[in-house]
Amino acid sequence: MGILARPGSSVQAICDAAIYSELAGRPDEDVVLLIALSRVLGEGQVASWTFPRDPAIVATARTLAERQSASWSLSELALTTELVVSELVTNAIRYAGGTVQLRLIRDRALICEVTDRNPAAPHLRHPRTTDEGGRGLLLVAQLTDRWGTRHTGDGKAIWAEQPLSDGPSTPTPHPDG
């Protein structure tokens, strides 16, 4: 479909062209059309660090997240961001092999993303009061607007999103899908 390669086309124009031109002669075929608008983030909107699989780096990850929050003038989100970073990085170290990558993305929301080499998706647990663990992802889910996971070529990424204002947030498409 040539329309998909044309820069500057609106989503509506792409849909109209695909349906009325490209697919018009195929009435017997079932078609599903999914169009997503993407954009490139600026260099100053993404901070990224790669860490060895070592429990000692969790404190370093928290410190870097706090400093980045301050540099983006998001100090009001620093405490929550540090907690989210701590939980996600700790889980990546505990359950995955290899290095761990932390990315903070400042867009319409603040996204904290941790990538590791374990392809297994995490499960939100509801631990009993006597359980020793299992609260990390539950805390992340309660402290952030949204969270999710996606598979990567050699593992997964878990992300959590915080709104940048006190008002209700508009869902932000995750930059990588």
Score class of each variant (00 low, 15 high):
Trp49Ala: 10
Pro52Phe: 13
Arg53Lys: 13
Arg53Val: 01
Ala56Val: 08
Ile57Phe: 11
Ile57Arg: 04
Val58Asp: 14
Ala59Glu: 14
Ala59Phe: 10
Ala61Val: 03
Thr63Asn: 03
Thr63Gly: 04
Leu64Gln: 07
Leu64Asp: 03
Gln68Leu: 07
Ala70Glu: 11
Ser71Lys: 08
Ser73Gly: 03
Leu74Phe: 03
Ser75Arg: 06
Glu76Leu: 14
Leu77Glu: 10
Leu77His: 14
Thr80Asp: 15
Glu82Thr: 12
Leu83Tyr: 00
Leu83Gly: 03
Val84Asn: 05
Val84His: 02
Val85Thr: 15
Ser86Trp: 11
Ser86Arg: 13
Ser86Tyr: 10
Leu88Gly: 02
Leu88Gln: 09
Val89Phe: 14
Val89Arg: 01
Asn91Cys: 14
Ala92Thr: 11
Ile93Lys: 05
Arg94Thr: 12
Arg94Ala: 11
Tyr95Gly: 14
Tyr95Ser: 12
Ala96Ser: 12
Gly97Asn: 07
Thr99Gln: 14
Leu102His: 11
Arg103Ser: 11
Arg103Phe: 05
Ile105His: 04
Asp107Ala: 11
Asp107Gln: 09
Arg108Glu: 14
Cys112Gly: 08
Glu113Cys: 13
Glu113Val: 07
Val114Gln: 05
Asp116Leu: 03
Asp116Phe: 06
Pro119Phe: 05
Ala120Asn: 15
Ala120Met: 10
Ala120Val: 15
Ala120Phe: 02
